[in-house]
Amino acid sequence: MMRLPAFDYRVPREVGEAVSLLAEYGEDAKVLAGGTDLLPSMKQGLFTPKVLVSLRGMAELRGIRDAEGGGLRVGAATTLRDVARDPRVLALYPALADACSTVATHIIQGTGTLGGNVLLDTRCTYYNQSAFWRTALGFCLKKGGDVCHVARTSPTCMATASADTVPALILMGANARLVGAAGERVVPVESLYTDDGRDWNTLRPGELLTEVLLPPPAPGSAILHRKMRRRQAIDYGFLLAAVRVDGDLAGGLTDARVVVSCVGPRPVVTPLGDLVAGRPLTAELAEEIAHAAARPAAPLTTHGVMPSYRKKMIRVTVRRALDTLRGEPSAAV
């Protein structure tokens, strides 16, 4: 059996206790939510924390509550399955429910949490490998080495944002409640990520994500989640996209935004307000949006799937999502 490295294990009963444990152990501690990302990575030697701080003892981190003034507050330790099955989520945020149910498999969705997904480590074919494999290749920038195998001259790591729920969360305008020893803050999910796959999130040391805050959906706005993968289950995406349009599809749009992920350390957000303002969502506009969304994305060899193909598929996926909104059956036969 593949073994985990040894560590100490703590189960705080409330957020305050958790935060002080995290402060106490600093770099040596890791938060354990569902463990479906962290534990495989630890088995591969990617992390060797001295302490795991489990979230299982804190009921306050689980469950979905109505937010004052509309919207929902999803506890960070709520499982993806519970999010996907919640009637309020299904009614208000179908794209989020969709995104939760494309993660891995239904079994992992029952264990993995929304918080863990938002904070899913960046991924790369040269990084998510056993210690033996990485020794054989030579360590990479993200773990133990000084060169990025994806882009040899790059000073930063190219490992990609890979969490299924994040593109939709960004388009929903979701916020994250972060609690640290020094206090708490609420920041947009979009602002949690950086351009360096090594140091890829903006959490401050010892901060705990306690809630994901979903604002009430804007009237007249629609969001769709799309994922492309080789295998229909047990597979990360090689491309994630979420598309949002606001306004009257036939009369004239007021705004549009596309998020593309799995193409770099942070999801690529493309605001398209200027392009779409006042225009109806025609086939031509859909094509233009798809092109605009693909333009800033620069997939690299972080995945087994060719970068040029992934780039091409951004256009197809985004355009098809828009076609679905237009009531066109997806161009696929």
Binding site: Y9, G35, L39, R56, I107, G110, T111
Partner: peptide, 29 residues
């Protein structure tokens, strides 16, 4: 696989399927 990739280690925890290879025993307290 011991990494959560295959499902061979599936057990039920409180009635729900769970991959026992990527679940800490102590999490089942």
């Amino acid at each position: 696989c011991d990494l959560g990739d295959c499902g061979a280690c599936t057990v039920l925890v409180d009635g729900e399927p769970r991959l026992s290879c990527i679940t800490l025993a102590l999490e089942c307290e």
